[in-house]
Nucleic acid binder design. Structure first.
Lengths: 185, 185
DNA sequence: TATGGAACCATACAGTCGTATGGAAACCAT
DNA sequence: ATGGTTTCCATACGACTGTATGGTTCCATA
């Protein structure tokens, strides 16, 4: 029988996982379901990721890298309020893509509480973003402390925005962000 | 055979669920595990909660009620900055009990993204706390908007505090809270 | 003390999970 | 063309899961 294998890359699999997780939560992102979503067999997934934990870790790492890349593209030579706004805006669900991202990110963050491999990725991610924010704050007093608070606050905004009954619409998000930055620089 | 039944109340069951969830995450809080933790049989759990979903909903509601009760005890006649600080402090993991609470709360919040019953409870909780905060802000301009931002920010602080690599120690939490309130009133 | 309902238990069922196994198909260097 | 490696599939296994069933114990009330 002539058979044509699909181009089953790890990237395609993590993308399928994102789809499932965004729609039905991480719990629904089982090996079987992800395989079906990607149009491949269970074995194909197993070939690229030996265990489910590795699959999750790879997906989480890819997601984190995506956010990091966006932040890394921000021009740090821009004047302070603007560059801070730009960095922080990357963390907010201001469009459909970032809303999906924030949803999946929140799911991973929750699971990181009980998964050592995910916790490690999360810890690195938090530290890096905090450092980036500290840098974006320039030579202000207590930049590190301010960065930590700003980061947590924006993360909270993102979480409330994607929560049921969060009550934070898109334009309220940007207004809140501007208010935060205005009061914190 | 002489048998002695344990005092199996719904409260004892939800308490057992909190224990399991705080230690090993909500995923680990299966009907069997919760029953074992409470020292009763599966059937006893089934008797009080017809389904696992109902068990989760009852536990989440109880947790939410606890937070709400603490907030309700705050004296709203105190001067503005103090009463706002007091309300918001109740949301932060400033002691061991509230740390456990924040952990379990975060787990429920994550699950609310895919569980309609939990989502309903969460939506009500968010709305109520936001209203409480708005009231605590008194007759300030844009009190509602400020309340939403403050709430999200404090929730973010709580989340980062209990996250791996969150990097927010206890005294930093109170400092951040004071800074937030100072800049927002 | 008889009786009915509430509380609780032991067990079983079907379904899903992650993972292991053995082989087939595809590709690649020789 | 051939042998080896990578890629992928079909299937099976044991360990769970939530829930259903039928029975037992307890307790209040009559």
């Amino acid at each position: 029988m002539v058979r044509q294998y699909a181009a089953t890359s790890p990237e395609a699999l993590t993308e399928a996982l994102f789809d499932v997780a965004a729609e039905s939560g991480l719990d629904a992102a089982t090996v079987r379901v992800v395989a079906a979503r990607a149009g491949v067999s269970i074995g194909a997934v197993q070939h690229h990721f030996a265990t489910k934990d590795q699959m999750y870790a790879a997906a989480f790492a890819a997601l984190v890298a995506r956010v990091r890349a966006r932040i890394g593209r921000v021009d740090l030579t821009a004047p302070l309020p603007e560059r801070l706004l730009t960095v922080l805006a990357e963390l907010l669900p201001l469009d459909k893509a970032r809303t999906r991202e924030a949803r999946v990110m929140a799911a991973f963050a929750a699971r990181a509480a009980t998964s050592p491999s995910l916790a490690a990725i999360q810890a690195a991610q938090l530290a890096e973003i905090r450092a980036e924010l500290t840098e974006a704050l320039g030579d202000l007093d207590h930049a590190e402390q301010r960065a930590a608070v700003l980061f947590a606050a924006v993360d909270g905004l993102a979480l409330h925005a994607v929560s049921s009954g969060g009550g934070l619409k898109r334009h309220q998000l940007t207004a809140a962000l501007e208010e935060l930055v205005r009061r914190f620089v």
